[in-house]
Design a protein around this nucleic acid. Sequence first.
DNA 1: GAGTGGTCTAGACCACCAG
DNA 2: TGGTGGTCTAGACCACTCA
Lengths: 257, 257
Amino acid sequence: MATTQLEPVQEPKYWHLKTVLQEALDSEFSVGEILPNERDLAARFGVARATLRQALEQLELEGRLQRRRGVGTTVAPPRMGIAVGTTGASEGAWPGSGSESWRTVGCAEAVPPAAVAAVLGTGTDELVHTVRRVRMMQGQSVATELIFVPSGSVPALPALLTPAAHAPAVLRELHAMALESEDRAVELGSARAEDAKQLDRLPGAPVLVVTTRYRTGQGVAAVSVATYRADTCRLTFGETGTVQISHHEQEERREAS
Amino acid sequence: MATTQLEPVQEPKYWHLKTVLQEALDSEFSVGEILPNERDLAARFGVARATLRQALEQLELEGRLQRRRGVGTTVAPPRMGIAVGTTGASEGAWPGSGSESWRTVGCAEAVPPAAVAAVLGTGTDELVHTVRRVRMMQGQSVATELIFVPSGSVPALPALLTPAAHAPAVLRELHAMALESEDRAVELGSARAEDAKQLDRLPGAPVLVVTTRYRTGQGVAAVSVATYRADTCRLTFGETGTVQISHHEQEERREAS
DNA sequence: GAGTGGTCTAGACCACCAG
DNA sequence: TGGTGGTCTAGACCACTCA
């Protein structure tokens, strides 16, 4: 990466800078390589550090870079394709029944947020079983999830359970039921403090929030809210999984009339 | 919204500020209302404008605010639920066959990006039909899309077509085939210049990129890359559509052990 | 303790929109 | 033309990691 002079343009500097860096990443760097530090880079391009950071932030958002305080900025590997939804069978499955590697980190009875309670049809002060899980992928945690299960959905659940036995028991009861359908929504969010910690990110990091509604003949039996790292994850839906296209490989896409 | 003093905390100022503003939005503002300008707000909270902007950016990312240069900052309506994928039938459908309101804005024969060509199985220099569409919702454009269709997928397509007849003809030929399956991936991206323009956003705005692979018995017949505004859209998958939970209504979620 | 990225400041000027 | 958000600067200090 030469000491590139930015030619004068009527395009924001940070945008042009991003393009230049993008090209450098494609041609001169390999995955895992460490970039020069921000002060040096800024000096090299003749811009203020804040301006350089604006470009780096964009590239991190797009999954091209990874920055860690006290360490440095490295070239990120391509995003992982992560199966969400119909993970094997054709008609969906209860959480915890697939081959995905989730790790349960807690379970409690708690009052869910109002919006969740509304979908579940529970009272605004009604306690529901709340299972907290973390999804691992290639040795990293890529998602956290809260599964909300009203007591009414699992009537056969034993009354007294040790904390360790609580989550498995709730999921076991769920699996015993006939899942009629599930539907999902995906939206952009920012990581809340506790999620950020488990995802090894700073609070406010961009995440993809996947909300799933599990339905049986009796109505909505459970709701889950899963929070995926947006920088490292590409969520895949349907059939055998992996759509091969990674978004950042489309930079040189030709314009269609 | 009172002239709130930020009590000294060991939390980043912009993060705390975001929380304070979030609460104010919930309690004291209604959709469409105009906030005080950035210089006034910053003064009121006793922070620099850049710090205030960091908080506003987060809130805009989460779909709570809408900012427009030369106009001001307004309170955004809740995100629209936008159906993606199985829009009616159970097994997917070709683009252009559902009830969604897409508007075709162009069609050309062009060389697709390498990643798309790889999935289509076309040569790296092979021209493919490239349909460009815009999706409208409640009077706004919420998405742009490029549909890539290799000539081999539509052998009966007439050779000479006027530009206006090109796109409809390509889609008509597609619809005549038996769609075997489709699979999708969703990831975070940032709007390229031309997309940003059509979405009425600035370049670099966060978008949800949906890549769909359409398969027939002969293999991958078409690939589409759709770019949705991440600030205003919640993508819904499966059944009758609308999951009711809007992410930003979950602020007061209780912690599960 | 040296070096990294993260936060914050107090300015300045620019591009855009509306009256 | 006045007011808005968007860009940019040149500093400062903090939190974190690692040798």
